[in-house]
């Protein structure tokens, strides 16, 4: 489904991704763990098509075609979704207006009919209920005044609403308490499907207790340094990055 081949990427001339290779097949859940500053968020942005990240080498294939030249919205239309580590606050745009605009933009791009207001509200209510998001939050401007946890729930809500095929979650677990973590994890598990894949970026084993990954990758300094099964996450939890020969920087 997603194939990342020897990816090199730079910001402001600094190379951050230094030859990252990763293959994700349909239906698989992959986890990436790595110390702060190893380039995890950079990877997520590059996958989503952020323009100020310059890909200097390598390629990204989605459904076997390179997406390198595609804009973020074109990638979204193909089914790529990024749950942001730091969701952006946008004053003046009501969340529900935004959600409907996004859903309809995706539907148009995929050649589907727009959803009518009533059907949209029903759909929105369904996912909001499952994620414990209140009506009041949906009326507020996008992420404005939301707590860290509320922002992460809203990301999870968008994921559920927009029904992507390739989900990238960048530290969705940070800022969530145990209950919220369980709710978000249940949401992911519910969405797991043979034609939907996940790339879950996290620092902590605890999310992976709820969402069982098929593969775990350890990332350091812009590369994947080791790949394996869920046991890697346990080893990391027990022994720290030192066990992988990685010197962990002070928390950024």
């Amino acid at each position: 489904m997603l194939s990342i081949d020897n990816l090199h990427a730079a910001v402001d001339g600094n190379e951050i991704l230094k030859g990252l290779t990763l293959d994700i097949n349909p239906g698989e859940v992959h986890a990436i763990m790595g110390p702060n500053g190893s380039g995890k968020s950079t990877l997520s942005y590059v996958l989503a098509g952020r323009e100020d990240y310059e890909v200097t080498d390598g390629d990204i294939f989605y459904d076997r075609a390179s997406i390198m030249e595609l804009a973020p919205d074109e990638r979204a239309a193909l089914g790529i979704f990024l749950a942001f580590q730091y969701p952006v606050e946008i004053p003046g745009v009501a969340t529900t207006t935004f959600l409907r605009t996004a859903l309809n933009a995706l539907r148009r791009a995929r050649g589907e009919d727009e959803i009518n207001a009533a059907a949209f509200l029903k759909k929105q209510r369904d996912v909001a209920n499952k994620l414990g998001v209140s009506d009041e939050m949906l009326k507020r401007p996008i992420n404005v005044g939301f707590s860290g946890g509320e922002k992460k729930r809203m990301e999870a809500l968008q994921m559920a609403l927009l029904e992507p095929r390739m989900v990238i979650m960048d530290e969705t677990d940070s800022g969530l308490d145990i209950d919220a973590l369980r709710i978000v994890a249940e949401n992911v598990n519910r969405l797991r499907a043979p034609d939907r894949s996940f790339l879950i970026i996290t620092h902590y084993q605890r999310l992976l207790d709820h969402i069982k990954p098929d593969y775990v990758h350890i990332m350091a300094d812009g590369r994947i340094v080791q790949s394996g099964g869920p046991e890697l996450a346990h080893k990391l939890e027990a022994e720290g990055y030192a066990a992988f020969g990685i010197a962990e920087k002070a928390a950024a």
Binding site: A48, E51, R75, F84, P91, G92, V93, A102, A105
Partner: peptide, 22 residues
């Protein structure tokens, strides 16, 4: 904000319109 909106499928024009309107 532009990137966030576009990552959700809004075209550049639509994202810009939404931000201007806001």
């Amino acid at each position: 904000a532009m990137f966030y909106l576009r990552s959700r499928g809004l075209s550049a024009e639509l994202a810009r319109a939404l931000l201007i309107e806001a």
